[in-house]
Write a protein that binds this DNA or RNA. Structure first.
Lengths: 231, 231
DNA sequence: GTTCCTTAGTGTAATAAATACACCTTATAT
DNA sequence: ATATAAGGTGTATTTATTACACTAAGGAAC
């Protein structure tokens, strides 16, 4: 094992799908590549993992370089290692997603030398991406669509204080379907994971809605994922 | 990219959790290592991925070398790449699971030079494993426990023809809880994914049960995974 | 062939969850 | 004061989940 032949060495990257929710639209962060191959194409933020770096750390580093954000929870969702996925040979990539709170978008400053620019793109308007990134995106999007139905991941995309309508809109955008307002509220409130605030929405030209917070403590106490065959 | 420095090269393995169901017990295949590090310890079947090999192919190869089986569906479930997981430096491993049909166990012949032996071990009796394989096992087991509640993966572990009681036993072993016979049958049959055969169990010293088959065609037509917020 | 043993196989009532559906209220803008 | 736009609310129906116990069938033992 100490003397493993070189043919076992591999090239290794991390790619990230960074979701944000802004003005009612679900978006992801894309970079325009400034390097061959695929110079000028859009791609998911990602880069090579160093030999002495843990995958998780690499993912955090890439998130930081793409958005300026630190300490965001990222979930690994799949590893891609087909032969044809990179024109220069087999490159294995571990894919992560992150959901971030765009507080007016001002704090997110993408920084990357291998990229001409970074842009937020509505998930409905993603162009064809470099390498197999289109496939990676589809798989990641499917994952969160699936996950949102049984885990409270949506809150990470919203401002800390939000209205039930904003929350419902986010669910509708991710699930790509209309939901019934009364049933949505009844169900969401029945989970008992939200804290109702004494505050109301401001700056709207119609009746202001109550604001809510996601309540981690209540969540831990009250939320139990139900599965079939529970008894 | 063509001239990437060597510090981007990494060592890369695939590890497999191979589940089998035998005499009412859920088991996995373990090998006893014959190489340092962890010589003499039990470990998940696994090995290095070649530089020119797709991950999927490597997983298939390792399954073949461990069991003599080909063409079994394997699902990738997580990639482990922490710094301390291997004593000789950072090694990244992509973990897969497979569920195989032990038709009397005769056809499964583990073959591996780096292993002293391969043994089937009840999931309730897994010893401490080499590297972080105990953790990998726990994560994979959790995955199938979760998945069995909404996907028909249990059938892959059973003989082609099985009784409802056998199916229920398998669910009970994986979920680690007793289920109600009437409710289990009602629900399972309501999915309409089984074909009732004209045959009965043989060689039992009590009333023989009807045999069923998993019906792929019915499954495709009738099975719709239900999620919350469907409307 | 009678009895014993073991598992197969079945139905219903009660409870809980999901769905369908429409109107009045409140805040701001004009 | 009026118009506009979203906020906020309840109930009846349907569907799914749960709890629960006895008879039927087949082979084994005598």
């Amino acid at each position: 094992m100490e003397n493993l032949p070189a043919h076992f060495d591999s090239l290794f990257t991390v790619d990230c799908i960074i979701f944000g929710f802004d003005e009612g639209e679900l978006k992801i962060l894309l970079i325009e590549r400034n390097e061959d191959p695929f110079r000028g194409w859009f791609a998911l933020p990602g880069y090579f993992v160093e030999k002495t770096e843990a995958i998780e750390s690499a993912a955090q580093r890439i998130l930081y370089e793409s958005t300026g954000l630190k300490g965001i929870y990222m979930e690994q969702f799949y590893t891609f290692g087909a032969l044809g996925r990179h024109p220069q040979g087999r490159v294995i990539t571990v894919a992560y997603y992150a959901m971030i709170r765009l507080t007016g978008q001002k704090d997110v400053k993408p920084v990357s030398d291998f990229a001409r620019q970074a842009v937020w793109v509505n998930v409905k308007d993603i162009p064809e991406l470099a390498f197999d990134h289109s496939r990676i995106f589809r798989k990641g999007f499917e994952k969160i669509r699936n996950k949102i139905s049984y885990q409270p991941i949506a809150f990470e995309l919203l401002p800390e204080k939000f209205t039930l309508t904003q929350l419902q809109n986010l669910y509708e955008v991710i699930l790509n379907k209309k939901l019934d307002k009364r049933n949505f509220r009844k169900k969401m409130l029945s989970y008992d994971i939200l804290k109702e605030l004494d505050e109301k929405q401001k700056g709207v030209s119609y009746r202001a809605a109550k604001l809510y917070k996601f309540d981690k403590r209540k969540f831990a106490k009250n939320f139990h994922k139900e599965l079939s065959f529970t008894k």
